[in-house]
């Protein structure tokens, strides 16, 4: 928590993730302000699940998120571009097998 946010009455910010349905990965929904984790959960429910958007919620203090920086974009993600062998399209399948699907 930063100095200024402890000095004011403003509640800290939390990032909200929700699971749209059983077995699906969690997605980022947005954020809420809340004084603590339990209230963050309740606020997230009231804000981001008003229309049955999900079945489970995670809340994380926003200042606990570590994100890659824009300068990392090239270094982090470009190298994967030429690794075609990681993608299923790289492999050919006999015609007969394709038909059976």
């Amino acid at each position: 928590m930063t100095e200024s946010s402890t000095n004011t009455t403003e509640w800290p910010l939390w990032e909200v993730f929700y699971q749209p349905s059983d077995g699906k990965p969690f997605e980022h929904a947005g954020s809420v302000h809340a004084p603590d984790a339990e209230m963050a959960l309740l606020n997230a429910r009231d804000t981001y699940a008003r229309r049955n958007e999900g079945i489970a919620i995670w809340v994380v203090p926003s200042d606990q998120i570590t994100a890659s920086s824009p300068e990392d974009r090239g270094a982090f993600f470009d190298p994967a571009n030429d690794k075609a062998y990681r993608h299923p399209q790289f492999y050919s399948v006999p015609r007969a097998v394709k038909k059976r699907k």
Partner: peptide
């Protein structure tokens, strides 16, 4: 008293 609570009370 706060936006989040406005939503909660309305709910």
């Amino acid at each position: 008293p706060e936006l989040e609570e406005d939503l909660a009370l309305a709910n």
